[in-house]
Amino acid sequence: MTFLPPQLSEEPPTGEVFHYTSADVAITNILTSRTLRLSPMHSTNDPWESEPIYTGFTLVDGEQFDGDTAQAATEELDRHIRLHSKVLCLTRDWGVNLPRFEGERRGWRHLSSWAHYGGGHAGICLGFNLEKLAAAFEKVGGPDALRVAGPITYWAGKYAPFLDQIDTRHLHKYGTDAVARHYAEVFQKRIFLTKHADWSSEYEYRFALMNQSTLPEYIDISDALTSVFLGHSFPEWKLPSLREALSNFGAIEVSRMRYHNRTVQADPPGQLAEPAATAFPPKETGALMERVAALAGEAEYHVV
């Protein structure tokens, strides 16, 4: 059974999704490269995904398929699926017709996500236009890639939703790589878009990709980035780097989280303040390196 609260299942989500991360990753990786990384599936936080997938097998009468053979086939199929799959985890957003910085169920407002993924409240939460991000996702991974996108379904119970067994004749006829790819296509929602109910508070929306590469893939966010939320403890000294990293994105709304007396809110969006003017404006004219060259002929330092 799914664990989406009733009021959210009846309310349409907005057209935005959010991604929590540390300040350094946001500034030096995501914003500087203008990409979001699809990370290996085995690095996710739910053991349903990060641990091996055991499919089980349907045997033909008289076929020799002992325990060791079954274990080897299971491990090989699992490698083809999980080691060749990458995911991007995002947070869904509710609050149609509300400003981005208001609302109890906004995607940037999850305190546990700020603590776990947002650098302990010192990181950044990035907002994206879902339609534009999905269009960029379609260009990733090559022509034969399996691409899956959608909200996560959260299931309760001791076991994950059942997956059918694999006919061993297909392994012999088509090979484990073809069987694994076809199996992932058939059961894509259960493999890529299902997690345990313990993670339901993350309200995850996901992009998943499976191809022949074991390396990460990257989605271009040049046209998709919409907003930036700074954690309550985001350090002021990182603002110049953030300002520079955002300079090529156009007008991006930047808000800061505020916590006071057990309430949470975000400051209304605004442009990042420019750094204070220097207290020592130079009397000499010229560009920086011209003034450095003039200074070098005048200053005397004692270097040991």
Score class of each variant (00 low, 15 high):
residue 34 R to E: 14
residue 34 R to A: 15
residue 34 R to Q: 15
residue 34 R to F: 04
residue 35 T to S: 07
residue 36 L to A: 07
residue 36 L to M: 13
residue 36 L to D: 04
residue 37 R to M: 11
residue 37 R to C: 10
residue 38 L to H: 07
residue 38 L to P: 11
residue 38 L to Y: 05
residue 39 S to D: 09
residue 39 S to F: 06
residue 40 P to F: 05
residue 40 P to R: 13
residue 40 P to W: 05
residue 40 P to I: 02
residue 40 P to A: 10
residue 41 M to S: 12
residue 42 H to T: 15
residue 43 S to N: 11
residue 44 T to E: 02
residue 44 T to I: 05
residue 44 T to W: 01
residue 44 T to K: 00
residue 45 N to E: 08
residue 46 D to S: 08
residue 46 D to Y: 05
residue 46 D to A: 03
residue 47 P to D: 00
residue 47 P to T: 00
residue 47 P to R: 04
residue 48 W to Y: 08
residue 48 W to V: 00
residue 48 W to H: 09
residue 49 E to N: 00
residue 49 E to F: 04
residue 49 E to D: 12
residue 49 E to I: 05
residue 49 E to C: 04
residue 49 E to T: 06
residue 50 S to C: 13
residue 50 S to F: 00
residue 52 P to R: 08
residue 52 P to V: 02
residue 52 P to K: 01
residue 52 P to I: 05
residue 52 P to D: 09
residue 53 I to A: 02
residue 53 I to N: 03
residue 53 I to E: 03
residue 54 Y to C: 09
residue 55 T to K: 01
residue 57 F to M: 02
residue 57 F to V: 08
residue 60 V to Y: 06
residue 60 V to K: 11
residue 61 D to M: 02
residue 61 D to Q: 14
residue 62 G to N: 07
residue 62 G to Q: 07
residue 62 G to I: 03
residue 63 E to V: 12
residue 65 F to V: 08
residue 65 F to L: 08
